[in-house]
């Protein structure tokens, strides 16, 4: 590695820790920051500091928030009888974009993944079960439609169904705008299994 001055070398090293950032990109970003106006660079530093200091997990749903409980958990307009279970906080945004869901959320913090050492104990499943005592009527499981997400969905549904609460799974199958010709057997099978009456 070329010999940069110590502060810039440290900045490059820190930037390299970010996902998808290698040596070259880190150098490019570091030099961009150096060339920027001091206020601009300091605003970036301050934004990172604020995010780290002010953002925490919601004590109810585990979403990331700057107020505890979060916006969704305290909102008077949300339907408190339905909880949508997602893997990560950023999944909430994808669902909110639809403007069709007005219930509450529960973030698991991942999905069952034995290869990554993630089992039921590592997920926020116990707190989900605790929340069901508050008159919840339906749980929508919106984990990813892959092996890990499906295993998590089935595991949770086995725990919740005996409690007499309706458990549903988001639709899985052909994406809008795609072509049936290119769908593989499993995707097509899931689409047929999840068909609905018109």
């Amino acid at each position: 590695m070329p010999d940069f001055a110590e502060p810039i070398a440290r900045l490059i090293e820190e930037l390299k820790h970010l996902p998808g950032i290698g040596q070259k990109t880190a150098q490019r970003l570091a030099f961009h920051i150096l060339r920027a106006e001091p206020e601009e660079a300091l605003a970036l530093a301050q934004a990172i500091r604020d995010a780290k200091e002010k953002i925490r997990e919601c004590s109810v749903c585990n979403n990331i928030t700057d107020t505890d409980p979060c916006f969704y958990c305290t909102s008077a307009t949300r339907n408190r009888k339905t909880i949508c279970v997602v893997e990560e906080p950023n999944n909430i945004l994808a669902i909110e974009k639809t403007r069709q869901f007005s219930g509450l959320y529960h973030v698991l913090g991942g999905a069952l993944s034995p290869l990554q050492g993630v089992g039921p104990e590592q997920l926020k499943i116990k707190s989900l079960i605790e929340r069901l005592k508050g008159g919840v009527e339906e749980i929508i499981i919106a984990t990813n439609p892959n092996a890990e997400g499906e295993a998590t969905a089935v595991y949770i549904s086995k725990l919740i169904k005996p409690l007499g609460i309706r458990v549903t799974r988001i639709g899985v199958g052909i994406p809008v705008g795609s072509d049936l010709e290119y769908a593989d057997e499993i995707t097509m099978l899931k689409a047929i299994e999840g068909r609905r009456e018109l």
Partner: peptide
Amino acid sequence: ELIESFLDVQSDYACGLALAQVSE
């Protein structure tokens, strides 16, 4: 191109755990 899928069996946690061990 898919020849055979084992996705469904992995939705059972015990089976998924065993197959994950096979992979590992």
